[in-house]
Design a protein around this nucleic acid. Structure first.
Length: 574
RNA sequence: CGGGGCGUAGCGUAGUGGCUAGCGCGCCUGCUUUGGGAGCAGGAGACCGGGAGUUCGAAUCUCCCCGCCCCGACCA
């Protein structure tokens, strides 16, 4: 039983000055966490209990699914990360350090290498597969900008699992088992979430989904269809536009358009020339970009910006994507800035991509690749042919759902889980192979699956807290019942203690406010701030043989006979 | 890394060159109080983020450094 008279806890009456989001403010005020450095927090008893409760839910669901728990060090030697080039590629986000002999070490930001190497050293036959192993471990990432308290820290607790299979069919099964286990997990944690398609690669790559907990302070943006439930990361949102029939569209016509290097000016000139009716959506924006040093052209409707992040995610293997700078234009003197059109960029040796919104058969107003000239009736398939289609245009609320054409909404969320078919990247790099039935060596295929355990504390706090404090779901609260004893006599205190013992005998965890010197108001405020689901007040009502039972979430109160209190409380908790 | 804000006691804050750095919460002692952050009285607690400088005099002005928060870039 957690007794407040001795609990290592000091709640704060004022919001801490350095906290802005609800979870951060309340977790500090209620005495769950304290900041040590940017993105690094200490956990006080209430915080530790809450974190453990979440860990245990995760652990139980992993174990039920048949995954086995292991544990790696956080402090790792450089070698493993050299083989996969991550010692360099991970960049400044990797905490690097040296031992006394000058040997290089790192604090693990994630453990793919270690898991892969461990399986490699233990297993060598297809008969040993499939295998899924996991750990719950502290991870270290030197984030450029830690944020929002515990939501994005530099030290955080993560559950990471890895699956190992002999073939793609096996990987699909392992992936699905994780997906099912995650659903059970997050349901038990009382989180609202959407399972969102992450970028799986337009290039037909592997499958990946994120579990996103909707919340206004979240840092992920995703699209959601209110009708069919389609949900996707903005980067993974798919655009479906049908091809149209270009017959009947007049042939391409070049137009004199001096001094109109921008879309706005172009629309104005068109409306002046042809008596109105034109908008930016009728024009074609031809954006030049550099992908890892290679020049590409991409076409989007003139009323949309190119979303570089989205485009890059859909260009597999591209590390750096940026728009043309002056120096790049200097390399391609054929390109007339402000008047670029798709009609002959391919002739300049540049690959031409088009967003799906620039569908086959559609007709556009575009640059004519000549100074002061534009063209209209520029038809996809007739006047230019894209080399490939790629999702590149920005996504907007109201765009149509690829599944059912309903207008999608855009929402914010915290990423609490991510499941991902890794494939053979790490197994290849680290040479993880097993012998198959024919005695032939086969590279193992892997999946990786993460749950942000410490982040889940914040995500749940964000979704459940209110004006007056935290408000935990039953399974993860530091105690299921918070008993407040009030008055100056021994009777309510003795009664409260006995009630606590009776509840604990039924396996119901109890926090008891047995402080003799605190006023009732302080105790009520603290109980509400700390956020346990049931608050029982043992005080005034005792003269009638009653205690008061309050439900934190609904603020419902009722008086219950002391003799019936245990069963009444137990039934509220089920 | 770019932009903005901030750093005074455990927490929240006042103090723009001049007395012993002020207030609220919290903490300690005593008395009273006990159903919505009690009252009175007394008390402890601050190298005013650090360093250098200007000045008769610096929390306050100047320079450098460090740290923290927010927006963005970045990252899962």
């Amino acid at each position: 039983m957690l007794k407040m008279s001795t609990l290592f806890l000091r709640t704060l009456r004022d919001d801490p000055a350095d906290a802005e989001v609800a979870s951060h403010r309340l977790l500090v005020r209620a005495g769950y966490i304290r900041r040590v450095a940017a993105g690094i927090y200490s956990w006080l008893p209430l915080g530790v209990i809450t974190l453990r409760n979440i860990e245990n839910v995760v652990r139980q669901e992993m174990d039920k699914a048949g995954f086995q728990e292991v544990h790696f060090p956080a402090l790792l030697p450089r070698e493993a990360y050299e083989v996969t080039h991550r010692w360099e590629e991970y960049g400044p986000s990797l905490f690097r350090l040296q031992d006394r002999k000058g040997g290089d070490y790192l604090l693990g930001p994630t453990h793919e290498e270690m898991f892969t190497l461990m399986v490699k050293s233990e297993y060598s036959s297809y008969k040993d597969l499939p295998l899924s192993i996991y750990q719950i471990q502290t991870k270290y990432r030197d984030e450029a900008r830690p944020r929002s308290g515990i939501i994005r820290g530099r030290e955080f607790v993560m559950k990471d699992s890895y699956s190992f299979d002999i073939d793609d069919a096996g990987l699909d099964i392992s992936y699905q088992k994780h997906r099912d286990a995650y659903i059970k997990c997050f349901d038990r944690l009382g989180l609202r979430y959407n399972i969102v398609k992450a970028v799986s690669g337009a290039m037909g790559g592997s499958r990946s989904e994120e579990f996103l907990a909707p919340c206004s302070t979240g840092e992920d943006t995703y699209v959601l269809c209110p009708s069919c439930g389609y949900a996707a990361n903005v980067e993974a949102m798919v655009t479906k536009v049908a091809a149209s029939d270009p017959s009947g569209i007049p042939s391409l016509e070049e137009l004199d358009t001096p001094n109109t290097p921008t879309i706005d000016l172009l629309v104005a000139v068109m409306n002046e020339k042809f008596g109105g009716g034109y908008t930016a959506a009728d024009t074609l924006k031809n954006i030049m970009v550099i992908a890892d040093g290679r020049a590409l052209a991409v076409l989007v409707p003139g009323d949309r910006e190119v979303d570089l992040k989205r485009m890059q995610e859909n260009l597999s293997g591209v590390h750096e994507l940026r728009v043309f700078e002056e120096a790049d234009f200097a390399q391609y003197p054929q390109l007339v800035k402000g008047y670029i059109g798709p009609q002959d960029v391919k002739a300049f040796g540049i690959t031409l991509y088009a967003d799906p919104r620039v569908a086959p058969g559609t007709s556009w107003i575009s640059g004519a690749n000549k100074k002061d000239l534009h063209a209209r009736f520029v038809v996809n398939g007739r006047d230019f042919i894209p080399d490939a289609y790629i999702e590149a245009a920005e996504v907007r609320a109201g765009d149509s759902c690829p599944e059912c054409a309903t207008e999608i909404v855009i929402d914010r969320a915290i990423e609490i889980g991510h499941i991902f078919q890794l494939g053979r990247k790490y197994a290849d790099a680290l040479n993880l192979t097993v012998l198959d039935q024919n005695g032939k060596s086969q590279v193992v295929t892997m999946g990786s699956y993460g749950i942000g355990v410490s982040r889940a504390v914040a995500a749940i706090a964000e979704q459940t807290s209110d004006e007056i404090g935290l408000n935990w779901p039953v399974e993860i609260a530091p105690a299921k019942v918070h008993i407040v004893a009030t008055g100056k006599d021994d009777l309510p205190f003795d009664t409260a203690l006995q009630l606590g013992r009776d509840l604990e005998a039924l396996g119901i965890s109890v926090m008891l406010d047995d402080r003799r010197d605190a006023s009732p108001g302080v105790k009520f405020k603290d109980a509400e701030l700390i956020g346990n689901p049931i608050i029982v007040v043992v005080g005034k009502a005792l003269v009638d043989g009653n205690v008061e039972v309050r439900v934190r979430k609904s603020a419902d109160k009722s008086e219950v006979a002391l003799s019936l209190a245990v069963s009444a409380i137990a039934s509220l908790l089920t």
